[in-house]
Simulated assay, not measured.
Amino acid sequence: MKIAVVGATGATGRRVVKHALAQGHFVTAVARSPERLSTADRLSLARGDVLSAGGLTGAFDGVEAVISCIGPEKNLSPGTLMSVGVANILTECKHANVRRFVMQSGIGLSDGRELSWPNRLVVRLSSRIFNAAIIDKAVAERMTQKTDMEWVIVRPVVLADKPAKGRYTAGQSARVAPLIPLSFDDCADCLLRAATDEPNWIGKIVNVGS
């Protein structure tokens, strides 16, 4: 399958690229500085700026699925990276006739109804602390839900640079623990599943964690 990964030099994006190549997919890694990635068979590098209108032109040509791994570096003051970035990604997806779009979001966007009551409190508290990031991601999620492509929104719990477990909980309204870290590799695996498999996830919001 031909997949584009936006934000390919980030912590999650790098892992998505690695997993996709390992599974035999053709990958276009899109980033502001794609040269930070090592070259590999079936890997194409594309320079792109999600905050610039037209900054992704041509990046998705011939691509079947796009995975967005963009996210603010400073959660307390994220600006409009998610809302503007996802809007520009969706515009280029439409131009390139991309079939499926997967957006990495966060568990903080949940209203907590599917979680245990202690975890519901955790999510509500974190949404207040990271209110600016939540608002920005919420706009991006709403735009994604309105697209006429096949879409999946993936909401991981807190992520950490640790070894992959290879098993995790993922699904619509999945009961996850927001404060138990999920490895970037396991999150990447879930994002890739959303892009290449899991037909029951299409048009759904998927929680992923422990």
Rank of each mutant, 00 (worst) to 15 (best):
S105I: 05
S52P: 00
N75R: 13
K94D: 13
R100A: 02
M149G: 04
I107Q: 06
S83L: 10
A29W: 01
D111E: 10
A65H: 00
L191N: 01
A4K: 00
E198R: 09
L192Y: 05
D61Y: 02
D111N: 13
H25T: 02
A133P: 00
L109K: 05
D41L: 08
V30H: 00
A29P: 03
Q145K: 12
G71V: 05
I3R: 00
A195C: 02
F130S: 09
D148A: 13
T28S: 08
T80P: 01
N88Y: 02
S183M: 10
L45H: 04
V154K: 01
T12I: 11
S38G: 09
D185M: 06
L125M: 13
S44Y: 11
E73Y: 13
P181D: 14
P178R: 03
C187F: 05
E150F: 04
E35M: 09
L43R: 03
T57H: 02
I134D: 04
R36K: 15
S77D: 15
D161C: 05
K94W: 06
F184M: 07
G85T: 05
I107E: 04
I202V: 14
V208F: 04
P156W: 08
A140I: 06
R100L: 04
V16A: 02
I129G: 05
I202T: 14
V6I: 12
R113V: 09
K74W: 13
E73S: 15
T80F: 10
A53D: 14
A133G: 08
R113N: 11
A53Q: 10
K74N: 15
A140S: 09
A170P: 04
I107W: 05
K137H: 15
Q23D: 15
E64M: 06
L192E: 02
N119S: 14
S33H: 15
R113A: 14
R32Y: 07
D61R: 03
S38M: 13
G108C: 08
R167N: 14
L121S: 14
L90E: 04
L121C: 12
D186A: 05
V86W: 03
P78S: 14
A4D: 05
V123N: 02
L51Q: 12
N119Q: 11
E198K: 12
L21S: 05
H19P: 00
S77N: 15
D61V: 08
V154I: 10
G108Y: 01
